[in-house]
Structure formats: C-alpha cells, structure tokens
Amino acid sequence: MDAELEFAIQPNTTGKQLFDQVVKTVGLREVWYFGLQYMDNKGFPTWLKLDKKVSAQEVRKENPLQFKFRAKFFPEDVSEELIQDITQKLFFLQVKEGILSDEVYCPPETAVLLGSYAVQAKFGDYSRETHKSGYLSSERLLPQRVLDQHKLSRDQWEERIEVWHSEHRGMLKEDAMLEYLKIAQDLEMYGINYFEIKNKKGTDLWLGVDSLGLNIYEHDDKLTPKIGFPWSEIRNISFNDKKFIIKPIDKKAPDFVFYAPRLRINKRILQLCMGNHELYMRRRKPDTIEVQQMKAQAKE
C-alpha cells in the first residue's frame, strides 16, 4: 500500500514462505485477513495459494513478478476486532485507496468527512503555525468523481477539509484511522465481495459475501440486502458447473439455488465463503495464546 518490497525466491519457494517473509518484514501478526494477489496469465486478479510453489502458479511472467499485499477478509466490526496498530494502518491504507480511486462509491459529504480523518491521521492536530494555507495542496483528498461532480475549486474543497481537520483536535492518529474505517464500514464501502448472479427467471441480482454471511441484493441497490444467509443458518455450500447450492442447517427447509455465469466465479465465491466462515468460527472460540499475548501487548 505504501512501500515496495523485493524478495528473491527459489524455484521451490512456496506461497507460504513468500507470504511469511512479507508479513515478517511488515511486522504484521494478524495475518489471517491478508494475502498476496497477482494477475494471472489471463489478466484476472488471483490470490497466491500458500500451499503451492510460487513457480507452479500462473503468475504473469514479468521481471520481477508483481504481487499486491492486500486484505482478503475483513473484520465483522473494525473498531472491536483489529488488535495491532499496523493491522489498522494496512486496512486504512487499502480502504482509503479504494475510496479515492472511485473503486467504491462515496457520497460527497462523506468524502469530505473521511478526507478530514485521513488528514488528521497523517498530520495530527491542526495548528495554524505549521499548517500554512496550501498545506493540503499536494494531498490526494477526494475521489475524482466528487471533484468532477461539483464546481467547487480545489482551494474551496481544501478549506472545507481544513475546517473539519481543526474539529478533530486532540484525536490520536490511530483513532482517526479507526474513525475512517468505522464510517466507511457503516456505509458498506468495503468488506463485501459482490458477484453477479441470476435466479431461475434469469433476473440479474447481486450476491454479497462478507464476514457475517451471504446476502442477495437487487441489481439497482447494492447497499440494502433483501435476503440474508448468516453463517449460523448455513450447513453447507457447494456448486456444480453454474449452479450454486446453499444447504440450510434446518433439514426440513429447502436448499437454496442460484446461478453464477462462470465456473471461475463459483470457485472464488466458494473460496471467500470458506475463508469468511472459518474466521467467523475462530472469532467465536476462545482467543489463542498468541492472540491473548497480542491483546496484552496492544493494551500496554
């Protein structure tokens, strides 16, 4: 997100060995959310498998091979769950990049509020002496769509954000990052993986996979789930070819079937479901020794 790291790998280096090197270098311990993503030979973003050799995976031939270190799974509640500052920082950098690059839609007034928390996270408290007018001129503050949609000048936008920045006086940089993540999470700006699906009639709908389960959305409203499948209600998920089957815990209830356009999509949906479900179950078990130690350290 904010640095480039280069590693030499051997022909039999596994994905896990490479991933472990990256997280050790970055100092990250809550590794279960993250993965290494590469573009495959067909140009599709693909997660590096940890159990296979890097050389045996279809990473597009470049020198050096390109990977992105990204969050693959997201917490249920960002303000409660993330233990270390570095974890929050990595999520913050990724979510901010997603919003500033218009990957997700962000309404203008929210964009200004989020921009002001990002400024607080970078500069700390606003002070007239150190933050002369123009101190934001080289900052990426707002999504391009917001800048294009409104006739405000760059200076006028900066002025609005400056007003909010001074409002945040006394807020720690880490807390500003967390506020940013909390607001973005409330507005569903991250954490949900959307897939286009159809019902038997062929109507286009969205399937959302997130930390709490699966949701079905109507095509014109990705923010309001119409049908929900919490992990607690699901016994099994499987697919064959284009047909996806969700089996309920309640044996008397009917299986739920939907259709996804391509086999590769089904594989991705299934992989995300397995990973999110595993984290969902892990959260409901007692903390491992390592997590207990991390929480104690973070509290200090």
Binding site: L113, D186, E188, L223, P225, A253
Partner: peptide, 30 residues
C-alpha cells in the same frame, strides 16, 4: 450529518429475518 447517515446505515446492514421458504419465494419472484 455525514456521521449520522453512516450510523443510520449500520441498522439495515442485515437483510430482514425470514424462513428459507420465504427466502426461496422472494428470490424466485425478483
């Protein structure tokens, strides 16, 4: 205003509770 809007969103993050027959019926009728 933006904060209130964000907080209000927190409420309807989840679909309404319903049994699987209802899920089926709703989905087929979209």
């Amino acid at each position: 205003e933006a904060k209130e809007k964000a907080r209000s969103k927190r409420a309807n993050k989840r679909a309404p509770q319903m049994d699987w027959n209802k899920k089926h019926e709703l989905f087929s009728n979209f």
